[in-house]
Nucleic acid binder design. Structure first.
Length: 887
RNA sequence: GGGCGGUUAGCUCAGUGGUAGAGCACUGGCCUUACACGCCGGCUGUCACAGGUUCGAAUCCUGUACCGCCCACCA
């Protein structure tokens, strides 16, 4: 006799089934299969990271889709892996070293890399273990890491090809430099933060001694590197000064006054100091006017020898010292408070220093043009679609991509320099020697992490080799990821996929929302409001967390994770568990799966529940097709709890106590429906459904088996819509039984009739069909409403001891001798009448409106008339009851 | 400066043209042998504000207010 424990113990159950799925290869893709394919790649988490709540969402949603597709019979590949996350990982290990009082330079490059590898191997276990805890149905046999040899070869192929096509170049240019990480950063790795700063007005004396020009700057220390002062050519105030020479304070260098349209006459004084070495705008201006660039800040953020008296000082200390000196010399006209956006390093928070340096770049415009076209042509679809605009916006204003990083952890750039002849070789494999015979030295820089992540949808499938997997699973079907990496990752995959894999990397992109805390605040360590998904999993189980996330994943909306919702769905898991226990307790030795008897021979409740479960399966499928995880979850939640458990299970109980064949029929239908519900729920809550399903006798015979045996619900068929079970009549009949039952329950609850008191109820005014139905279904009503007897009558004598409820055109008489309070009854009926009158007034107003009758949809008019009729009838009956109560 | 989103029950959120819903919370009654993480009832809303379109607006349009996000080389 199969049995379930009293409570669902996720901590004990979940790992057991995950191990089982891996053991039977339930998630393994099969490229030789003749089934249609469905493929996704998992956005690779940072290898040294830990599963956070954002991952939980971004991994749960694709898992739902993938499990659903697998159950629908697709050959599914969901490919997992991790990202080496260059700068982030290097920083973590450098911090570890710092605690030992060492730097990476103490170790040297090789030893440092070895150290990072050690940490990575260990950390990878953590994150992949956490992914298993969440229940992710990925194909671990195809797990990849961006630094795998084959993926590294893909990166070299990418680099070399782009170089040969003239899309990768090396140039001295102004870059975002992090003095803490000591590396260049791409524009995307710089985060701008609104900061309270100061605007300093500095006086630059004219060389000819005829006064001075005042410039405004937020970064006075950069003045040491000024090589000009610029004004707008149309600015009347300054036109006469163009060409005049100024004397740079402290340094003494002569600066020309130049005219450049970039200068905004309305800002500051309308005269701008120009520091080509430390400001992107000034750099561009310097190029336009052939100005020298004087670097006064070095790669560590310290002042250079060019900074005169401040040489060697930290850039911020130098600022303070310089301001004090200028103040003393009367060269500061004024200082204003000024809020402005300051660039910070995304990874370490240090204020970014624009510096001129020699870096590798990707010429992006040609790649972007193709990527824009692919979306315009509809070859890629964003869901929700408003992200399309964001994508275009960025793609259109994109700048060349700085891909070199002065780090040690990452793909080393495959370029070699020959000191003998000054030549350079770019090649996929290490060249033996320079053509001139000189020794070669490899570029020390590594590539931006995203330069390799951008290949992920095809490098993981074997590219650049023409593998079976690549042919079968590329392009992938769908990508699900967060909006925060649309630019970093999604856009680059599109550009690189088109360029290298010959097609878009995915058809649909579902962009998930940001998970926030209960009050809608962004989670951050500093705010201390971070919700740890692993703790939630420990507390209430992965299933409850998954169901909550799915329920709250409405398109385009941020998710404020609420404790209340989590509790609610944990209780749902419990409900499922207990309903399953009930089922198993009532099998009475049933070991196989009995066939469902012919539909027409079934009792009403059985026809109704099959009708509904069929509809729900259809609706859930539709919702998932539209990526409406919230709608799908809510449909199955509502049905399971408030139709199947609240009504069907309650109504089926007497059938289970009955003799054969009634009992057998009930068992067969109950098993059928329960099985379907478990399968419907499985993509959302895989663990608990597997645990229950495994205890059920005679599992679904229509499943997909790997080896001819149905071993896991994960491989069973997703429930289908069954047209043969559609039975609107049964649905209508059930609705009436439910309404009558509820009316009686309400009447007794409102008057505090104890449940132990069995009542006799009379129903008046039923037509022939209703009378037949109500007497056939009388047993259910009696049971659910706590009645002794249920009787029908054409007319029932009035009695002051009787409470009357009106359901449609039926009057329900509930004799409650000694309980009925005439005053209270009158009040209740007046209240009910008032409610009806309000509704009637609304409908009457509409119906009285000729325009409404003319212009509204005829169906709507008809529906309004029907309602008007029903409500009018109810109103009449209640008025009569009231009159009798008063009289 | 540009772009996007939000404002619905005490809380977290669904609802995109026919007169408002869910979960939690609250509340009354029940340990009715699947479930007290439960069962049966009940309460709760000028759908941010102001105009407009429409027979009809939470839903479409315009504007306002507040909240939030993204992008941005105005010092």
């Amino acid at each position: 006799m199969p049995e379930l424990a009293k409570g669902f113990d996720h901590a004990q159950v979940d790992p057991k089934w995950y191990a089982f799925w891996e053991e039977i290869g339930a998630f393994r893709a099969d490229p030789s299969s003749d089934r249609p394919r469905f493929s996704m790649v998992l956005p690779p988490p940072n290898v040294t990271g830990s599963l956070h709540i954002g991952h939980a969402l971004n991994h749960t949603l694709p898992d739902i889709i993938v499990r659903w597709k697998r159950m629908q019979g697709f050959d599914v590949l969901w490919l997992p892996g991790t990202d080496h996350a260059g700068i982030a990982t290097q920083n973590v290990v450098e911090k570890q070293l710092a605690q030992e009082g060492r730097t990476r330079h103490d170790l040297g490059r090789e030893a440092f890399e070895a150290r990072v590898w050690d940490w990575v191997r260990q950390s990878k276990q953590t994150i992949t273990g956490q992914m298993r805890k969440l229940g992710e149905s990925v194909d671990w046999s195809r797990e990849r890491f961006t630094l795998d040899e084959q993926l590294s070869r893909a990166v070299r192929r990418e680099f070399v090809t782009l170089y040969r096509d003239g899309l990768v170049y090396r140039d001295r240019y102004i870059v975002n430099w992090c003095p803490r990480c000591r590396t260049a950063l791409s524009d995307l790795e710089v985060v701008h933060r609104e900061t309270a700063g100061r605007l300093y007005y500095l006086r630059y004396p004219r060389v000819d001694g005829r006064g001075a020009v005042t410039v405004a700057t937020t970064r006075p220390e950069t003045m040491l590197g000024d090589t000009a002062v610029a004004v707008n050519p149309d600015d009347e105030r300054y036109r006469h000064l163009v060409g005049v020479r100024l004397r740079l304070p402290v340094i003494g260098r002569e600066l020309p006054v130049i005219a450049d349209a970039f200068v905004d006459p309305a800002f500051g004084t309308g005269a701008v100091k120009v520091t080509p070495a430390h400001d992107p705008n000034d750099f561009a201006m310097g190029n336009r006017h052939s100005l020298p660039a004087v670097a006064v800040i070095d790669e560590d953020g310290r002042m250079t020898a060019q900074a005169g008296p401040y040489a060697g000082q930290d850039r911020f200390k130098a600022r303070a010292a310089l301001v004090a000196d200028l103040e003393r010399d009367g060269l500061i006209e004024k200082v204003e408070e000024h809020r402005h956006a300051v660039g910070h390093c995304e990874r370490c928070g240090t204020v970014v220093e624009p510096l001129v340096s020699l870096q590798w770049w990707v010429k992006i415009a040609p790649l972007a043009a193709e990527a824009i076209r692919a979306v315009e042509e509809g070859r890629i679809r964003f869901v929700p679609e408003n992200w399309t605009r964001t994508y275009y916006e960025w793609m259109t204003n994109i700048h060349d991509w700085c891909i070199s990083r002065q780090l040690w952890w990452g793909h080393r750039i495959p370029a070699w320099y020959c000191d003998a002849c000054g030549g350079m070789i770019v090649a996929e494999e290490t060249p033996a020697a320079c053509a001139c015979g000189g020794a070669l030295r490899q570029e020390t820089d590594v590539l931006d992490t995203w330069f390799s992540s951008g290949l992920w949808p095809f490098s993981t499938l074997g590219w650049p080799d023409a593998t079976e997997d690549l042919a079968r699973y590329y392009p992938t079907s769908l990508l699900i990821t967060g909006f925060d990496i649309i630019f970093f990752w999604v856009a680059r995959m599109i550009m690189l996929g088109l360029r290298f894999a010959g097609d878009v990397p995915f058809r649909d992109v579902y962009i998930t929302a940001l998970v926030r805390d209960e009050r809608g605040q962004k989670m951050s360590k500093s705010k201390g409001n971070v919700v740890d998904p692993l703790k939630i999993i420990d507390d209430i189980g992965a299933d409850a967390l998954r169901f909550t996330l799915a329920s709250m994943a409405s398109p385009g909306m941020d998710i404020a994770l609420s404790e209340g919702r989590l509790t609610g769905y944990r209780q749902f898991i419990n409900k499922i568990w207990n309903a399953s226990r009930f089922l198993l307790m009532n099998l009475g030795g049933q070991t196989g799966r009995p066939a469902v008897p012919s539909f027409d021979s079934l009792a009403l409740i059985h026809r109704w529940v099959l009708h509904r479960v069929s509809q729900v399966a259809r609706d859930v499928g539709r919702a998932l097709t539209d990526y409406r995880f919230d709608v799908a979850a809510s449909l199955v939640y509502q049905f399971f709890w408030h139709e199947y458990a609240d009504w069907y299970i309650e109504m089926v109980k007497p059938h289970l106590q009955a003799d054969e064949p009634e009992r057998g029929q009930a068992v067969a239908v109950l098993l059928e429906v329960h099985d379907r519900l478990l399968r419907l729920l499985h993509p959302f809550i895989p663990f608990v459904t597997e645990e229950i399903w495994q205890t059920m006798p005679g599992r679904a015979a229509d499943g997909l088996a790997r080896d001819g045996v149905h071993r896991s619900i994960a491989l069973a068929a997703f429930p289908a819509y069954e047209p043969a079970w559609i039975d609107e009549e049964a649905a209508a009949a059930m609705a009436l039984l439910q309404e009558v039952t509820t009316a009686i329950r309400t009447a007794r609850a409102e008057r505090g009739v104890p449940p132990s008191r069995r009542l006799t109820v009379l129903i008046e005014g039923a037509d022939a069909g209703q009378a037949r139905l109500l007497s056939e279904g009388g047993e259910y009503i009696r049971r659910l409403a706590g009645l002794e007897r249920l009787e029908f009558a054409a007319s029932v004598p009035r009695s002051p001891d009787t409470v009357r409820q009106v359901v449609r055109q039926l009057q329900i008489h509930i004799p409650l001798a000694g309980i009925v309070d005439r005053e209270a009854e009158q009040q209740r009926i007046r209240k009910e009448l008032a409610r009806l009158e309000k509704q009637l007034a609304g409908i009457d107003a509409r119906l009285a409106n000729a325009d409404f009758r003319e212009r509204a949809d005829p169906d709507v008019v008809q529906e309004a008339e029907r309602q008007r009729g029903d409500l009018g009838l109810q109103h009449q009956k209640l008025e009569r009851i009231l009159a009798e109560l008063v009289g």
